[in-house]
Amino acid sequence: MQALLHAIATMELPTDARRIFHGRGGLYPGCEHWALDAYAPVLLLTSFKPVADEELATIGAALQARWQQIGAGAPLSWVFQCRHEGRSETRLMAGSVPEPHVVSENGTRYRVHVLKGQNHGLFLDMAEGRRWVREHVAAHPELERPGLKVLNLFAYTCAFSVVARQAGARQVLNLDMSQGALAIGQQNHQLNEISDGASFLAHDIFKTWGKITRGGPYHLVVVDPPSFQKGSFVATKDYAKLMRRLPDLLRPGGHALLCLNAPELGQDFLQGQMQEFAPELAFVARVANPAVFADVSPERSLKVLVYRAPD
C-alpha cells in the first residue's frame, strides 16, 4: 500500500478529471487492486478485491492530511468502491458529491456519477483518444467546406461526439443501446453549449446498418465497444462484423479509430482481424494511453488504433 500512500502524499490539487494512482498496471507490487481517481471536487478510491477497514482508515487519514495541505480550505470529499466477483459496493466516506456532478477535461465539461454503477460517465484512460479526435478533426482540410461527418459507435455518454463538434465536425451520429447513456450524452452537448449537429440513436448497432449507411459516408468512424457485454458485444466474435463494414462506411481517405480494452486481447488481435476483414484499410498508429496508465505489459492495457481508407 506504500506506493498508493506515496501518490496521495505527493498529489497536486486536481482540477481536471484524471487518474492519480494506477495500481492495475502492475508496476507497484502489492497495489495491483488499487486505483485512485479525481472527479473534481471528489476523489474516488477503487479496490478490485475486499480490503480491511483498517486499510481504508489509513488511506482516509492520508487523503485528509494531504487535502489539508492542498485543498485551499475546502472539505475533502471521497468515495470508496469495492469491485469483486462482478459486483460492486459504493460508499461515501467523507464530504459530499455534487448533484449534478460536472467535471472538466481539457476545457470540456462532462456529467459523471461516482455513487452508482461501475462506469462513471467518463473513461479516464481514453483521454488521449479524445485528444486525438479533437486534433484530427480540427486539422482536417475539409473543415473549410461544409459536411465533415463523424460516426460514433458504442457512443456511451458521447464524449467523442462533444470533442468532435467542438473541433468543427458538422455532423456526428451517436449510436448506443442505452437510452440512459445517450441522455447523459445529450446533456454533455448542452453543457458545452452545442445545440445542434449531433444526433442520438438508441439502437442495436448490428440491426441498424441501414440507417448508419444512409448517414454516410463518414470522414471518421469511432468504434469503442465494451470488450465483453453479454447480449450486446463480445469482442472475439463481434468485432469482425464491424470491421467488414468499415470500407463502405468511410469516405476515401477517411479514418477509423478502433478501441479495445480487453487485457486478454493484444494489439495483434485487432491488427490480425483488420488484415482479414478490412485489408484495404492501412494501419497508421497506436494512440498512446495517458502516462499514468502505464502497464507492465502494454498489450494488457487499452488499445486505440488508427486506420486510414485509401484515397
Rank of each mutant, 00 (worst) to 15 (best):
C82D: 08
E85H: 12
A40Q: 06
A52P: 00
R66L: 07
E85G: 01
V97I: 05
L122T: 00
T90G: 08
G73V: 11
G95K: 13
I59K: 07
V102A: 05
G73M: 12
D53P: 01
A72H: 14
L63V: 01
S88W: 15
N106W: 01
E99V: 01
F80Q: 14
P41R: 12
A57T: 12
D53K: 13
G95Q: 13
Q64D: 13
E32C: 08
S77L: 11
S88H: 15
Q81A: 13
L36C: 09
A72N: 15
A52V: 03
P41L: 09
Y110A: 04
C82R: 15
H84L: 04
Q68H: 12
L76K: 06
Q64R: 12
R111L: 15
A52L: 11
L56M: 14
H84S: 13
G26K: 09
A65Y: 01
S104G: 13
L36M: 07
A61C: 01
R83P: 00
V51W: 03
V97K: 07
P75S: 11
R87D: 10
I70P: 06
E105Q: 11
L115E: 14
W34P: 01
L56S: 02
T90P: 09
G107M: 02
P41Y: 06
E54N: 11
A38C: 09
N119G: 03
R83Y: 02
D37W: 08
G117T: 10
G73D: 13
W34K: 03
G95Y: 11
V79T: 06
S96N: 08
R91M: 06
N106F: 00
L76M: 08
G60E: 10
E55G: 02
H33N: 12
I59A: 03
Q68A: 15
L122I: 00
E55S: 10
F80T: 02
